[in-house]
């Protein structure tokens, strides 16, 4: 028995070692590179890049798109998870596959399909321009693309949890005459709370960082349709490496902030429970 524990300790440390090394090389080093480059020319240059007018506008747009994506996908995720896990119907597998599809669609294609749908060669373009609605190369297009790439993130977190919970509790409540919203609030939501939080974090993180799809659809109008990742690209293409990395580090910091908030909420919630 003693030997067993000793050996298992060795395994433990080896595994922890591998995990840490992997994360260090693949994650920490690139991030450190970003931060180091950002401060290479001192805090003043950093601050200048970060407080630049265009940067601030890009931050606002990014936050806008992220909030919208989270909101939209929350609504979608809850409805989708509810219908998929609580009922049986034909074509369920097809439905879940279609919901997941956006994750694996190349961002280039994601942008391309919206250009094809709303662009000048699209059949509905004359109608849109008649109404004065601009979708692509404008803010709605950016929001649409962001929603698209993060589409399944919340439902994907909810479905497995709800699936493993089964439907017994809800059925019992329904038989006793509870309304749908009540069932959801009192029975279902407590189960999916943490999964939901994870989903929101994933969705927000991915929405902030989306580059490919947004880049195809934005038109790169400075101060108008530039998100943070696109602004980074622009700075980079201006050979302004330090400011480019400075702006990227804002994204890193935003992501870290979200992850910290998640940990705190989770920690508090689990302690209360």
């Amino acid at each position: 028995m003693y030997e067993e524990t000793k050996r298992s300790k060795v395994v433990k440390y080896i595994l922890i070692g591998i995990a840490l090394l992997f994360v260090f090389v693949m994650l920490v080093l690139p991030l450190v590179t970003v931060i180091c480059e950002a401060f290479k020319s001192g805090a003043e240059v950093f601050w200048q890049a970060v407080s630049d007018d265009y940067t601030v506008k890009a931050i606002v747009l990014t936050v806008e798109a992220t909030l919208f994506a989270v909101l939209f996908n929350t609504v979608f995720g809850i409805f989708a998870a509810w219908s998929i896990t609580k009922f049986r119907f034909k074509g369920k597998k097809l439905l879940t596959t279609l919901i997941d599809l956006p994750v694996t669609v190349s961002p280039i294609i994601a942008g391309l399909i919206f250009v094809l749908t709303f662009g000048r060669q699209s059949p509905i373009y004359p109608l849109l321009s008649e109404l004065g609605i601009k979708v692509i190369f404008a803010v709605p297009g950016i929001i649409l693309a962001t929603v698209f790439v993060t589409f399944p993130f919340i439902s994907r977190e909810l479905i497995p949890v709800l699936e493993s919970e089964g439907t017994d509790e809800e059925e019992a409540a329904a038989l006793m005459g509870a309304k749908g919203t009540t069932i959801f609030r009192k029975i279902t939501f407590p189960h999916i709370k943490w999964a939901f939080l994870y989903g929101v974090v994933l969705c927000a993180a991915r929405a902030m960082g989306e580059f490919g799809a947004v880049s195809v659809i934005s038109g790169h109008l400075r101060g108008k349709t530039n998100t943070l990742p696109l602004h980074v690209e622009i700075l980079f293409n201006e050979f302004k490496y330090v400011p480019a990395f400075a702006v990227s580090s804002i994204l890193v910091l935003m992501a870290i902030a979200i992850l910290i908030i998640r940990s705190v909420v989770e920690y508090k919630g689990k302690k209360d429970a």
Partner: peptide, 17 residues
């Protein structure tokens, strides 16, 4: 907490870094 960071970092920045 770090696991999701690759999502948030724009892919272009990741590529450059």
């Amino acid at each position: 907490g770090m696991i999701e960071l690759p999502f948030a970092l724009p892919t272009a920045v990741a590529g450059i870094a």
